Simulated assay, not measured.
Amino acid sequence: MPRRREVLAALAAAPVAAAMPLRRARAAEVTLKLHHFLPPVSNAHRNMIEPWAKAVEAASEGRIAVEIYPSMQLGGRPPSLYDQVRDGVVDVVWTLPGYTPGRFRRIEVFELPFLPASAEATSQAAQRLYEEAFPDEFPGVKVLCTHTHGPGAFHLRDRPVRLVGDLAGLKIRAPTRVINRTLELLGAIPVGMPVPQVPEALSKGVVDGTVLPFEVTRPLKIHELVKYHTVFRGERGFYVATFLFAMNRARYESLPEDLRAVIDAHAGIGLAKRFGRAMDEGEKPGIEAARERGNTFIEVAGDDLADWITASQPAVEEWVAAAEGFDGGALVTRARELVAEYAG
Rank of each mutant, 00 (worst) to 15 (best):
Q197R: 08
K54V: 07
A272E: 06
H45L: 05
L38K: 02
V164F: 05
T146C: 09
F326W: 11
W52P: 08
H223G: 15
K227Q: 14
E50Q: 11
V226G: 12
H36P: 08
P175T: 02
F110E: 02
Q197F: 11
M247I: 12
A241W: 02
T210E: 14
V216F: 01
V216R: 00
E111M: 15
E131C: 03
A306Q: 15
F326G: 07
I269M: 08
E6M: 09
A250C: 02
A322C: 04
L259M: 09
L225E: 07
I189R: 09
P196K: 01
R181Q: 08
V56G: 13
M1F: 01
A343K: 12
G276N: 09
Y69L: 10
H266C: 07
N180P: 00
G187R: 03
T310Y: 07
M1A: 11
S118I: 06
E29A: 14
R218M: 01
M72R: 06
I269C: 01
I309R: 13
S42F: 00
A315L: 10
A265N: 11
A19I: 11
E6N: 05
P199Y: 00
E283K: 02
S254R: 14
K204M: 08
T310M: 04
D304V: 15
R236H: 12
M20H: 12
L183E: 01
N43L: 01
G98C: 12
A10D: 07
S60D: 09
A28M: 06
G205Q: 08
A14L: 06
K221H: 10
E57I: 15
R177E: 11
Y228K: 10
P190H: 08
L81C: 01
D264P: 09
A267L: 10
W308A: 03
L74W: 08
G325E: 02
V332M: 11
L74T: 12
G282D: 04
I269E: 15
I189L: 11
P15Q: 12
G76S: 05
G98H: 03
L271D: 09
A265P: 05
I287A: 06
A55C: 12
P213K: 00
R103Q: 12
V90N: 12
E224W: 01
V16P: 10
A261N: 02
A261W: 01
P151Q: 03
G165L: 08
F134M: 14
A117S: 13
P78C: 02
G75M: 05
P51V: 15
V141H: 06
P97N: 10
R159M: 03
I263E: 07
D91Y: 06
T182P: 00
L156F: 10
E67P: 04
P101R: 09
D166Q: 15
Q313F: 05
G268R: 13
G98M: 05
V141D: 05
A119Y: 03
G344Y: 14
E292W: 01
P40E: 09
G169F: 03
G237H: 03
R277T: 02
V109G: 06
E318Q: 14
A290S: 14
R218H: 01
D264T: 05
M72N: 14
